[in-house]
């Protein structure tokens, strides 16, 4: 109930924001942070709950983005359907990669996700319909939806809704039987299998849902930049951020990736503006290592230990 209320307030704020926030940069930065909330939350469903590390967030993100672009170019598909199509395509990709490698335990899934990223990037580079390696400029629709006067503000609202849905999904999975099954897989897959947890089915479901959410986050990307090209859509930064944010925030709870994304996303925006964009990438790497070494349970773990005083040894 509290969650529903919070979600409604957030969406309401995003919908009403154009009335009182006129600073264009707010929407640009906000969009990026929200996008990272979706990516981090999606990553956490498989990586945090089940313990299977996805290095290919960029691939799922770009599949969403390019599905949207291809359909937009072909039939001028409206944004809502673009997002659904992107989510479906990326979800299917998650399912297929999972089918190929999730039967194997350990690091194979992670390696396969890197492989998928490179293969798909190569395919897109050679796919001239969506611009190939040169990229493709996107003309945004000329008429504005609803009462909006600025398309970026509209995209901000759309991304808020996607983020709220993603977090709600993660929360639903966490508290329900799927989450229990995934945690069992993470802690001891053999034991889980022996006690009748349908491990492969659960892993496939998690991989598909996680992929679909990443695709949904990617779908509005081209509209947001008015341009798309492979090396930014497939950027390693998405993979690193989507992995670093949940780990920094805390992987055990749905709020962890959200905290991590807000913290890291904001820090990155500040560093990019004040220092340089290379520095911002370095900050992510260093923070990731510092947290993994110093605070393995993330911000949530620190909170538990120092504020609630429930000791982890």
């Amino acid at each position: 109930m509290k969650f529903l209320l919070g979600a409604l307030v957030l969406v309401g704020f995003a919908a009403a924001a154009p009335l009182f926030v006129h600073l264009e940069y707010f929407y640009f930065a906000g969009f990026v942070v929200l996008q990272f909330i979706v990516l981090a939350t999606a990553w956490n469903i498989l990586g945090g709950f089940a313990g299977y590390v996805n290095f290919g967030t960029g691939a799922f993100f770009a599949v969403g983005a390019y599905s949207a672009v291809a359909l937009y170019k072909a039939v001028q598909l409206p944004l809502g359907l673009q997002i659904l199509a992107g989510a479906a395509a990326a979800g299917l990709l998650g399912f297929l990669v999972g089918l190929l490698t999730l039967r194997l335990r350990g690091i194979f899934f992670s390696i396969a996700t890197i492989a998928i990223t490179i293969i798909l990037e190569t395919v897109v580079m050679n796919w001239h319909y969506v611009g190939g390696a040169k990229g493709l400029p996107i003309l945004r629709p000329t008429e504005m939806p609803l009462y909006f006067t600025n398309y970026t503000q509209w995209l901000f609202l759309v991304m808020t809704i996607i983020a709220v849905l993603a977090v709600a999904m993660a929360r639903y999975i966490q508290v329900g039987w799927i989450g229990r099954g995934l945690r069992a897989i993470r802690d001891n897959e053999g034991a889980a299998e022996c006690s009748g947890v349908p491990t492969l089915k659960l892993k496939l479901a998690a991989a598909s849902i996680s992929g679909a959410l990443m695709g949904a986050a990617g779908a509005p990307f081209a509209q947001y930049l008015s341009f798309i090209e492979p090396s930014s859509a497939f950027s390693l930064n998405y993979a690193v951020n989507a992995l670093a944010m949940p780990i920094i925030g805390g992987t055990a709870h749905w709020i962890g990736p959200v905290l991590g994304a807000i913290l890291l996303g904001t820090v990155q925006q500040v560093v990019t503006v004040t220092i340089s964009s290379e520095m911002n990438v370095l900050v992510v790497g260093v923070m990731l290592v510092v947290f993994v070494v110093g605070a393995p349970e993330g911000i949530l773990g620190l909170w538990k230990r120092y504020v609630l005083k429930k000791g982890t040894p």
Partner: peptide, 22 residues
């Protein structure tokens, strides 16, 4: 075990890469 070991090495790799770029 699990996520952290991989994340640690991934972070190291990333720092090396960005360090070389810098």
């Amino acid at each position: 075990l699990g996520v952290r070991g991989i994340a640690f090495f991934f972070g190291i790799a990333f720092i090396v890469q960005v360090g070389l770029i810098l």
